[in-house]
Simulated scan of single mutants.
Amino acid sequence: MKLGIVGAGMIVKDFLSISHLLKDIELEAICGTPRSEDTLNELKDKYGIKKVFCDYDELLNSDLDIIYIGVPNNLHFEFAKKALDADKNVIVEKPFTSTYKESLILSDLARKKKLFLFEAITNQYFPNYKKIKELLPTLGNIKIVQCNYSQYSSRYDSFKEGKVLPAFDPKFSGGALMDLNIYNIHYVVGLFGKPENVEYYPNIERGIDTSGVLILDYGKFKCVCVGAKDCKAPIANNIQGDKGCIYQDTPANVCKRFELLMNDGTSSEVNENNYEHRMVNEFIEFSDAVKNNDLERCYKMLDHSLIVSEVQTIARHKGGIIFPVDDFTETES
């Protein structure tokens, strides 16, 4: 599978560091802005990428099977749509898009053209996460779910000094919900589906959420998701049922070992992840789906991404966080 990469930032470098483990993926090309050309060429030489482009249209006109989009959040929709319009399969980094409406447009276009469209969201593909899903019935009736991903950002120091970087800029679709809490939303929605109601209580500075508490109401149980970039706390995911709980002390984006703690006093530790790096499993599954022309698997994950996109859009609007691309004709509940 011939892969074209868009971007030269941290997430792209992270992906390239594990690309040698992806036997079905050929690093055909990388594309960025003219000002990043030196970095692009360094990455080309380091990882054996065949071609460098500084023009996205030229990249799309080349012989590629799939495009991996690792650009700032606010550009995900524009770059993904352009790739789909050019009949290219697409992997787009999380968060899928800035708004639910954008997600629907991409989803409809991919299905119409019978193209693959994936959101690169790590936790859905970990063996540990799949094991948690398998063990849920042993917990009895779920009562409370808690996910806390609080990680103090060095960029917050700059933000307090008046320097606004993309991670804290509404123009770039930044903020704690889009950066950290989005992993919690994926984690919960992947296990329990679409919530009945969404509420978001953010700490807002200069129009962006530096941290916030997301409440997902599932009727018979409640879920609290905390995402913070302006403070830190022990990271934990807890799924509490009336027969026992699952406790995990790693972030939702890496989903490492977890404990199964039962009310009868028995406990066990589980760790079935087979790769140390968080990005390997997702890209293996992406390439396997494309290789086997498994659109059904792709579109099932796309349906999941749509629910997450709808949840984050509703949450932002209820919390008063508005992006330039927001369209208030979108349906909210």
Rank of each mutant, 00 (worst) to 15 (best):
P34L: 07
E37F: 03
N293M: 07
A167F: 08
L104A: 06
T250Y: 10
P137E: 02
G9T: 04
L177N: 01
N61D: 13
Y149D: 15
F79P: 00
V224T: 15
H304N: 09
I246K: 04
S309G: 13
F79K: 09
V226W: 05
G265W: 09
L177A: 06
I215Q: 07
G4F: 03
L60F: 01
D326T: 08
K131S: 08
C245W: 14
I185N: 00
E285T: 12
I11Y: 09
I322Q: 07
F15I: 05
T122S: 12
A233C: 10
G320L: 02
D14M: 12
V311G: 02
R206S: 12
K160Y: 09
V325A: 15
L306D: 00
P251T: 14
N89T: 02
F15G: 03
L136A: 09
S17A: 13
F328N: 11
L40T: 01
F323P: 00
V52T: 09
D55K: 10
K112L: 10
E26K: 13
G244L: 06
K318S: 05
C147H: 13
S211A: 12
D24P: 10
E296W: 04
L60K: 00
F328D: 11
K23Y: 07
K112F: 04
L177F: 08
K23T: 14
I307Y: 02
D209T: 05
N148E: 14
L117C: 01
D326F: 08
A228K: 03
L136R: 02
P95I: 09
E26M: 08
C54E: 12
F328A: 09
I185Q: 03
L261M: 13
N203S: 13
Y187G: 05
M279E: 12
C298H: 03
E134P: 03
H20M: 07
